[in-house]
Design a protein around this nucleic acid. Structure first.
Length: 424
RNA sequence: GGAGAGAUGGGUGAGUGGCUGAAACCAACAGUUUGCUAAACUGUCGUACUCGUAAGGGUACCGGGGGUUCGAAUCCCCCUCUCUCCGCCA
């Protein structure tokens, strides 16, 4: 959620930036917002003046009562009753205005960083860098879903039976490979200064609201209505909520956390080749990294997070590319996002395996995540997060790219974790 | 799941209707002094919104929401959470 004060001060600038995000009706919405804000403050002033008056008069009544001046007290009570009526009316107006303002604010996306390119779709994203060779596969090479069956390492049919589509069962070396990847990612994160947490996989409504899953993305989460909980779509939700309503110490910056969790997404509306095999699942594993930092250093931190993700992909020997997302493709909440895609050689397509973003104060405003700055004033901190990494598509790329007639080769860095070099 | 107790500022904790935005102590911060890795003393020390060029005002907040009252941290109702005991259980 954007800060209303900043919109008030930089109206034209805000409108321009919203246009980069292809936000429709930017001008109209901002204008409406500012008019509402102006009115709200008028009402607020009026209301608070009346309340101040009420507070004083109530104290006077108290004095009369003590002195035993019953008549004066009764008269004052009548006077106060009138004031109360008008304050009630204003109070209703006030609540209405605040609600309208909040609803409007919630519908406005984050402002893009100045470096975000203009553009409408994923086609307009900028390829920042390319790393690694695209492997040439042997003649009998097949997509990962066939490899999974061939070597009996991921069983989609069995998952269908137990739960439904998108809930595969990992078996044998497949299950071990999952465990290896998780441990590898966690160890690497720790080496790079991210301290590990193991958060709950369900969150309450307040948490889902604070990170923006609610109200608009409710349909993307699995929910447990009986208890009012939601299955997390990403560990970002519980980790970021560690810092909800918290004032952190400036000296603790940057605060860096990592967490492994399973993620649950309903993925309503997905279809076709996007959901084939491991490409898109309802339940999947991911190691997430989250950072909290000073506004002046957050972009430097974003760079550090990017490097961390790149180092993982390099160590796994996967060909990848880094995309700077354009205004049209960047998420509602992010100011700047880099996507990482690995090449999946049998499908002959790039798969998104990580997304690293700076949210600036967009999340922290809702979270009320602040720090005391050097003047001793509380100020919103910047939040950043990224996947490091999501497993299924990494697995897909590994299986496809490393297949040989003899079997699937395990990258060298993973061998200490798997205990085997070949799936055959 | 059953029975009981509780939730106050960074922490401990006082406060049962007006003098309480909240005592006291601790921690923290700033300063003074003493010549010694520290003590003593003095001062500062919640958050948000809002009015004002500023100085300085105002409003709200004592787990969350609602109610009673001229007036609520304090009384009533609902919810959440914590603790103790019992039951059940990985």
């Amino acid at each position: 959620m954007l800060e209303i004060n900043k919109i008030r001060l930089n109206k034209e600038n805000v409108i321009e930036l919203l246009k980069v995000k292809n936000f429709k009706y930017a001008e109209e919405k901002i204008n409406t917002l500012l008019i509402l804000d102006e009115k709200k403050r008028q009402v607020q002033k009026e209301l608070e003046d009346i309340k101040a008056d009420l507070n004083i008069k109530s104290k006077v009544i108290g004095k009369f009562m003590k002195e035993g001046s019953k008549l004066e007290a009764e008269n004052a009570k009548i006077e106060v009753a009138n004031l109360k009526d008008s304050s009630k009316e204003l109070e209703v107006q006030m609540v209405e205005k605040e609600k309208e303002i909040e609803d409007l604010l919630l519908s406005i996306p984050n402002l893009p960083h100045y470096s975000v390119p203009k553009g409408k779709t994923a086609e307009d994203n900028i390829i920042e860098s390319n790393f690694g060779e695209i492997p040439k596969l042997y003649d009998g090479a097949t997509p990962h879903w066939e490899l999974c069956t061939k070597y009996d390492i991921v069983d989609f049919e069995l998952g269908n039976k137990i739960t439904g589509a998108g809930f595969p069962v990992y078996k044998g070396k497949g299950a071990k490979l999952q465990r290896a990847l998780i441990n590898f990612f966690l160890d690497e994160a720790e080496k790079n200064g991210f301290s590990e947490v193991q958060p709950p996989l369900m969150v309450n409504e307040a948490s889902a609201l604070a990170t923006g899953q609610l109200p608009d993305k409710e349909g993307q989460m699995y929910s447990i209505p009986l208890d009012g909980f939601y299955m997390i779509p990403t560990a970002e939700v519980p980790i970021t909520n560690i810092f909800r309503d918290v004032i952190v110490q400036e000296k603790d910056f940057p605060i860096c956390k990592s967490a492994y969790s399973q993620c649950f997404r309903r993925e309503a509306g997905s279809y076709g080749k996007d959901v084939r095999g491991l490409n898109r699942l309802h339940q999947f594993d991911k190691v997430e990294i989250v950072c909290i930092d000073h506004p002046e250093h957050s972009y430097k931190q974003l760079e550090i997070m990017k490097q961390h993700v790149e180092s993982l992909l390099k160590k796994l020997e996967l060909p990848y590319r880094v995309l700077r997302l354009c205004g049209g493709d960047i998420s509602f909440t992010a100011a700047l996002t880099f996507d990482f895609e690995t090449y999946s050689a049998a499908q002959e397509r790039w798969l998104e395996v990580s997304s690293v973003s700076n949210f600036e104060t967009f999340q922290s405003n809702r979270l009320k995540l602040r720090f005391k700055n050097q003047e001793g004033k509380t100020q919103l901190a910047h939040t950043l997060n990224g996947s490091a990494l999501a497993l299924p598509r990494i697995l897909a790329s590994l299986l496809e790219n490393n297949q040989t007639p003899e079997g699937i080769k395990i990258p060298e860095v993973l061998v200490p974790y798997t205990g085997f070099r070949l799936i055959n």
